[in-house]
């Protein structure tokens, strides 16, 4: 378990991270979302031990994260690497820096390249790799030393849909043996691999955003089997009624609506209800609501 407590960081007299506390559970994939300049990358760099915070602590198994450098894998937003190196040379370079010996590297490099789907590009020069391949090489260098905590900074932002799909599938596979935190703008994509999300804006944690389907208690959608009979709107004080089509109506109010009460009233009015449900809210919509208020 990784515990982040009251993290605070100022750079050039500007508060970048403001009293951030949260926990990442083992084998969980946590999504970090927020607008540009929210402090996501800085937070991830603090988690990686690269930046020391002014206040607060980051602990992993009750010890400072800095004592766990060997257990951390990090993928930066930029994955240009040394473009003259081949994939193998690049991994060998990072492996040596991680303290892996030659025998271990000889075994690990093909395994890792296989895992990220780059085995055929083992001797390919990085300069000739596509954006998606570089991103996968970035993940390969991050998992080369078999870390238990993986930090991914926008791993799929610059990729096409198929590239994003590949990265998400890879993250799903890695999740089985690692704890992962991933910053992203692509909420719909991240939904497939993240268990929950944290929203950050202006360096402040706005709160969690779980990956469950949330509903809007202020809006109810009713579908009928046959066209709804005419009714007086006075039966529904302070409720706005929108007719989407003859068999579909939307009821909205300024306060939470009671689903069963509305259903009873409509049945009394002679409606043959096919379905009645609160309006679902998408992850992106909830995120936008959250950041708009701050």
């Amino acid at each position: 378990m990784i515990q982040i407590s009251h993290l605070q960081l100022s750079l050039q007299r500007r508060l970048i991270l403001d009293d951030i506390s949260f926990t990442i559970h083992e084998h969980e994939c946590l999504g970090l979302i927020g607008p540009n300049g929210a402090g996501k990358t800085t937070l991830l760099k603090c988690l990686s031990g690269m930046i020391e915070s002014d206040r607060g602590s980051i602990t992993m198994s009750s010890r400072s994260i800095r004592q766990h450098q060997q257990s951390i894998g990090y993928l930066s937003q930029q994955t240009d690497f040394k473009s003259w190196m081949t994939c193998e040379q690049s991994l060998r370079f990072f492996g040596r820096l991680s303290g892996l010996d030659r025998a271990t590297l000889n075994k690990r490099i093909p395994d890792v390249l296989q895992e990220v789907g780059l085995l055929d590009q083992q001797t390919e020069v990085i300069e000739r790799l596509s954006g998606g391949m570089r991103q996968r090489l970035g993940i390969a260098q991050a998992i080369l030393h078999e870390p238990t905590f993986l930090i991914l900074d926008e791993p799929a932002s610059a990729l096409d849909p198929s590239g994003r799909h590949d990265i998400n599938q890879l993250i799903l596979r890695l999740k089985k043996r690692m704890t992962i935190i991933v910053s992203t703008h692509l909420l719909e994509d991240a939904k497939t691999c993240c268990d929950r999300f944290l929203v950050i804006k202006h360096g402040k944690l706005l709160g969690p955003l779980d990956n469950q389907r949330n509903v809007d208690q202020y809006r109810i959608q009713v579908e009928t089997l046959t066209a709804a009979p005419s009714f007086s709107v006075t039966r529904f004080p302070r409720v706005e009624i929108d007719r989407i089509n003859p068999c579909c109506y939307q009821f909205s109010a300024q306060q939470p609506l009671d689903l069963s009460e509305l259903a009873t009233t409509l049945i009394q009015l002679g409606w043959s209800i096919a379905s009645i449900a609160y309006q679902p809210i998408g992850l992106e919509e909830r995120f936008l609501d959250m950041v708009a208020d701050v």
Partner: peptide, 9 residues
């Protein structure tokens, strides 16, 4: 190029 991040982490 991001190398500094990869090295210093």
């Amino acid at each position: 190029t991001g190398m500094q991040d990869f090295i210093l982490t």
